[in-house]
Design a protein around this nucleic acid. Structure first.
Lengths: 192, 192
DNA sequence: TCACCCATGTAAGCTGTTACATGATTCC
DNA sequence: GGAATCATGTAACAGCTTACATGGGTGA
């Protein structure tokens, strides 16, 4: 905790608490879990995950034990504490009252592309099209998969699954929007 | 420059070079300019802008002089150097070949909202709706304004203005998409 | 006179990335 | 035996935010 601020909004902390609230896990498993779920709107490197977990343990939000004393891999299992659960719920119950500003490098490039050779801009737009199309495909596969998560008889999704699906839908809508914009951008650059 | 990496992708540097390439400016003016243009997809605090400009001067990318020896405000005017122009053009000519991953705090909250009181989630979604609607209005006003920038007779936009308009259109499309998603999210949360 | 904006800066700390480092297991 | 993956960690640094600090100009 900083001496300058009274609170921090350290998102990674809440992500780790959120997943550990489902059950104990190792740092490695948390990394895999993040990559396969929140990864498309919030990612982290393993180095940051391991150091944050250690800090959280110092702060009493999680506790850790080795899988077994014979485990040669020295796998450390993290468990959320009561204090950690409390902090997670308090954060969730405090509504976010501002907008997160975008940070999109590619738009910076486009903003200053008036001085570039239009042909090169078109080539770069084509690369982005390809990349965004492949991202869309990944998301659509994830969406297909989530449909098999429902209740075996009714097919109903749990509350948690409904929210997971919602965040995935944002990913899909974002990619669709981005591709529409890329097409528009190509039209504008060509029409010069 | 780090001893570990051979190159940096310091976006702020290129934004400052990009604007200074239009003409000399003070740090304060650069901050205002960023806030009124790239601000919706790339922002920076004044402290970061001033320190980055000083670093860039050390690196020979920009040079600075005081407005006048009598200027009580000690305003420092930055000018892009030949080396700075070269670096800017090299960066623009190197296509970006990956996707910038999103970082969207609000989606993290939604992802873990399965354990929350749905009523509270709905309240938070309503706050976000209000915020995103007001952002949309700001962008639409900016779009109206940009139409008056064209050539006085033909109304044509310069190359630069076309690209500026494109990035603004992404902002508008993003906000529209976000609002559609918020409506969908409200439906899903209500339907429980 | 007081509030507000203009204008520039430093310090401290948090957040995030890249590289370095090590050793075990699994599969071919 | 070698490559890929599992698994955890440290070091260094780059990037960004928040707070502190100072002083001038303008207009009510």
């Amino acid at each position: 905790m900083s001496i300058l601020t009274e609170y921090t909004v350290a998102m990674l902390k809440y992500i780790l608490l959120g997943f550990l609230d489902y059950g104990p896990m190792t740092g490695y498993e948390l990394k895999q879990t993040i990559d396969n779920s929140t990864g498309h709107f919030w990612h982290a490197h393993h180095s940051q995950i391991y150091t944050t977990l250690r800090q959280m343990e110092k702060d009493g939000l999680v506790s850790s034990v080795f899988k077994s004393s014979e485990d040669a891999l020295r796998r450390r299992i993290y468990t959320i504490t009561e204090s950690g659960k409390k902090e997670l719920m308090e954060w969730l119950d405090t509504p976010m009252e501002e907008i997160q500003p975008l940070k999109e490098d590619f738009l910076v490039r486009m903003f200053f592309s008036g001085k570039r050779d239009p042909q090169k801009v078109l080539e770069e737009l084509a690369i982005q099209q390809k990349l965004h199309k492949s991202t869309s495909k990944v998301y659509e596969k994830m969406q297909d998969a989530i449909c098999h998560y429902g209740h075996p008889q009714t097919g109903n999704l749990s509350d948690q699954q409904k929210y997971w699906k919602l965040t995935l839908e944002m990913g899909i809508m974002y990619e669709k929007m981005y591709q529409e914009w890329l097409e528009k951008a190509i039209e504008v650059v060509k029409g010069k």
